[in-house]
Amino acid sequence: MEFNVTLLGQAITFAILVWFTMKFVWPPLTNMMEERAKRIADGLAAAERGKQDLEAAEKRVADEVRKAKQQAMEIIASAEKRATQIVDEAKDNASTEGARIVADAKGQIDQEVMRAKEALREHVAQLAVVGAEKILRKEIDAAKHADLLSSIKAEF
């Protein structure tokens, strides 16, 4: 245990060393470490935020898809309705048109029948007249029918 000026020398070395550490070692290193810790915290927060954003986006996408599906269903339903409507309309039109055509045809047929009947009747009448003429030509005897003719003459 011998105390001498070494103690003073050691104390000076110590003081300078502490000053040096205080000036050039501690502040830059701790600042850097704090900066890093802050950056890591920021990164984690950003990751968390990104996750939340992604979740929200996924939810929105699901919503949109659901809405689109619903819309598509509505469109399909209305299209089906419209199609049946069109088919019904076409059916109605066709049936009325058919009825009309049938009625027209019937009218024409009736007309034709009437015309044929008329023609037939005329024909028959002619035939009757021709027949009658032939019969009459054979039967008529001026003498025999002189009375009759004279009576007719008389009537005029």
């Binding site: 001498n4 000026v5 070494t6 020398g9 070395t13 060393l17």
Partner: peptide, 20 residues
């Protein structure tokens, strides 16, 4: 009092430089 332990002083000084 005014004598110095050269070994203590120099070794600790070198180590101070190593640390710093």
């Amino acid at each position: 009092f005014w004598s110095l332990h050269v070994d203590t002083f120099s070794v600790s000084l070198v180590l101070a430089f190593v640390f710093a």
